[in-house]
Amino acid sequence: MGRGLRAAFRALLRKPVRVRYLTEAGEMVPVPERYRGKITYDKGACIGCLLCIRTCPSGAISTTEEKKVEFSVFKCTFCGQCAEICPKKAVKLGSDFELVVYEKEGMVVR
């Protein structure tokens, strides 16, 4: 009982634990360097080898008419396999974690 009491009063006197979502300036909190967020795609660098489609575990990647690919973020599981396999580093997993959109179109990366 004594230990629990001591721990509880210590917590009472301290600042409560808080994980911020926005910084003081109102921007998103920074994420670690390796964070796997929303996919970014450099279409110019893409050579259309389609290796990413072959290894994507969730079928989130599809081909387009111009022999490039597009990514459905709704299906993406953020494993980062496409970014890893891409020989031209055209695909990256960015730092954007706020995946809320009004139009579904916003969740397709072309």
Partner: peptide, 11 residues
């Protein structure tokens, strides 16, 4: 509120 603060939460 006090309960939360004693647990380290904002409450």
């Amino acid at each position: 509120k006090l309960h939360a603060r004693m647990q380290g939460r904002i409450g």
